[in-house]
Write a protein that binds this DNA or RNA. Structure first.
Lengths: 185, 185
DNA sequence: GCAAAGAAACCTACCATACGGTATCTTTAT
DNA sequence: ATAAAGATACCGTATGGTAGGTTTCTTTGC
């Protein structure tokens, strides 16, 4: 049946798979009706195996969220290092990061972040903290109402792409991105 | 015990109460952990009574959502009738409606709409439909990329206000709204 | 005008199931 | 040998839903 018992054990890989599949399930079924069994199945592990890696459901969810936040952090830092002009550097990176995520479609684990963020007050706080820290860190270059609007619009677009059954076309998205980035100049 | 059995029956009123309380519960506990019992209790009806009005949990949730969408529709229509310039009329009404909702804070039944919208894929589709119909209806006056960005930004702000533990200040919100509406001219 | 019948509104009691979590056992790696 | 990885079996509970009863409203026949 499950092959995890017979194959070579690569716990790190299993852990990764669990995180990814959990994110995926959260998108498909909504975090509320997310079930340990479903996640375990999707990762080809039994529920017991899952609970070995994450001692509770909440622990799993938290881990997913932290993982995604970490990736987002890295992504933004990378994008910022490629940006030579100072003003709005963070905002541009933010926009690009979000569009990149958006392009990956609703199957991307990133989509889970948003959903989790709304549902769970605890995660909401985490996100809020992250954002506020980041804003404070780049206050000198990115504290302007135009930039604020650009960031909010990026959020909205990202949200829309989750919401719409048929996401926006790549062409539309590209045009929107250009327009937003123009706002940051 | 429950007096619903002895009092004069006013099914319409009970139905309303069920919808309202369901919305309220969805805000408090999150839609995921929304329970029929809790809603029934809040409306002073037994679970059986609730299930008489709404044959399933999903039916109840859908009804709540539809109800709120209907209210939003009316609100937007009203705002549009007060707007004399043509271009961007819908977008301005959309922005105003969302800011009005945002100002009411997270206790408003509208907050439930948003959360539900993210969580439940089925509701996501309903919202998407609503939006697309509305956009088609106002294609002549509101199909422009600037307006699109303004709407997305409104979504983002609304989202941020749900997300942030301490919502944005009324002053900030006002400034943002003005700025957005300027984009629609 | 008024029973009687039928439908609608609502309640009580119950079932089935699915879910999170525990306890324990087997297999693999070091 | 020991610990980690993973599987299996099981438990308690809460929840959505069903069945069928009881009370109130509405319609119909006379």
């Amino acid at each position: 049946m499950s092959e995890a018992h017979r194959r070579e054990k690569q716990p790190e890989q299993v852990r990764r798979s669990l995180l990814d599949q959990a994110a995926r399930c959260a998108v498909d079924q909504g975090l509320g009706s997310l079930t340990l069994q479903a996640v375990a199945d999707a990762a080809s592990v039994t529920k017991g195996g899952l609970l070995h890696h994450f001692p509770s459901k909440q622990a799993l969810i938290d881990a997913v969220f932290q993982d995604l936040l970490q990736k987002l952090d890295a992504q933004i830092d990378r994008l910022m290092s490629e940006d030579d002009s100072k003003r709005g550097g963070f905002t541009r990176a933010y926009i690009d990061a979000f569009f990149q995520v958006t392009l990956e479609g609703s199957e991307s684990p990133w989509a889970a972040l948003s959903i989790s963020c709304m549902t769970d007050p605890h995660l909401r706080a985490l996100w809020s903290d992250w954002m506020q820290k980041r804003l404070k860190r780049h206050a000198e270059t990115d504290d302007h109402s135009d930039l604020k609007i650009a960031r909010y619009a990026a959020d909205g677009i990202w949200l829309a792409n989750l919401t719409e059954t048929n996401g926006l076309s790549a062409k539309e998205l590209d045009a929107l991105r250009e327009q937003l980035k123009n706002l940051t100049k």
